[in-house]
Design a binder for these strands. Structure first.
Lengths: 212, 212
DNA sequence: TACATAATAGAACGACCGTTCTATTATTGG
DNA sequence: CCAATAATAGAACGGTCGTTCTATTATGTA
């Protein structure tokens, strides 16, 4: 039942199927939203029967949560973990922003499933919303940590409000996604980068030691 | 049939009912999202029969569009038009931001129906999306106009990118809404104001250095 | 007041929803 | 290789969806 962390030694048949289902589910949630993530359509898309697919999850709610978890897992793998190779401080913070902007394209998704979930569950109480809040909270905390490191490195002014920075950075990224999907704005990424640079500039310590 | 602009002299019965339906629809879309805006539930909530309610709109899509139009109409009435009383320039731009942040509470809604629509239709082609894009485009254009006026008034630097400003301002407001509904953050409004002040400061003609 | 018309109700439709049950097939460990 | 078990299929369920049809009631007008 708990295929949350699959050991790399024995991928059983059921786990493989489940992974394939979740892949289709993440892709579908990103493209059409979580509301369109129905069991019938998902079964058709994966070549399974409704009941066969259903058996992998006890309920639709569990399927939605599993999809959300999988999306988060991919974000961490593709976007977050690589930033840890960047040196602590502004470099890593910038990597965090850039990877966040680009992880969708790197994952070959049409849109961000988490942004879709944000929209559909932010107001509806339930287990899905709870899981979502937790994921978002964790992402927010990671930004705050990165900002704090930048402050500690002397690159940001000591009085910089890390939570405020995270708030604004989240907004920039979210708006970038919206601008891309709604207005199909090809400049969205660049606009987001300008906004981020403006945000960073306002927090810089007076004597930045970037040099090279 | 076209009750789009009701003259103030003869509100016929059908128009009254339609207005009552749209009021419930807007309220419901804000609270539970457009996906939850089903004809059955809406009929129950307005005390009408499904078919009786349905007759006011030719299809569900038309109902959704009418709901979107009504929400936009209210935004204009409650938030946008009042800003025209503020003097052109920074004062009016600030009024635009502040009214945008507060119009929900002033309309006694639980959340912003347009933000909900943004989330659910930004990726799904159709007439609803088209209407939504048009509304959002118009709001964006109004921000750009207000920024341009601020530039013309000499309060913003001449090289200020008005479209970039609108992009960032939209992001700040949207994030404020998200932060309120998802994290239930009581500081969201203040954070949005701080972000907006930072954005304004970076465009100021005399360019005062930002502290926070 | 009578009548044309607008407004609404009620029942029914096919489609799809999530879910459950039972039966069948595939996988795997001893 | 064979039994135990996991994985999947198929059919059926009650419910709700949007929509259509027909009938009935309310409204506005001449």
């Amino acid at each position: 039942m708990n295929a949350a962390i699959s050991t790399n030694i024995k991928p059983t048949k059921g786990e493989e199927t489940r992974a394939a289902i979740l892949d289709a589910a993440v892709r579908m949630a990103a493209t059409d939203g979580f509301a369109a993530l129905t069991i019938g359509v998902l079964a058709e898309k994966t070549g399974l029967s409704k009941s066969g697919l259903f058996a992998h999850f006890g309920s639709k709610e569990d399927l939605q949560i599993a999809t959300l978890d999988e999306a988060t897992r991919r974000y961490n793998e593709v976007a977050f973990v690589p930033t840890l190779r960047a040196p602590r401080g502004l470099k890593r913070l910038e990597a965090l922003a850039e990877n966040w902007l680009l992880w969708i394209e790197r994952s070959e998704l049409k849109a961000c499933p988490m942004m879709a979930a944000l929209a559909e569950f932010d107001d509806q109480p339930g287990a899905v919303r709870d899981a979502l809040v937790q994921h978002m909270q964790r992402m927010n905390d990671e930004i705050i940590r990165a900002v704090q490191m930048t402050i500690d490195a002397g690159e940001f002014m000591p009085q910089t409000d890390a939570a405020q920075f995270a708030f604004e950075m989240f907004g920039i990224v979210a708006t970038c996604y919206r601008s891309r999907s709604l207005f199909l704005d090809p400049q969205a990424n660049d606009r987001a980068r300008v906004a981020f640079r403006r945000l960073v500039a306002s927090c810089r310590a007076s004597a930045p030691r970037t040099g090279t």
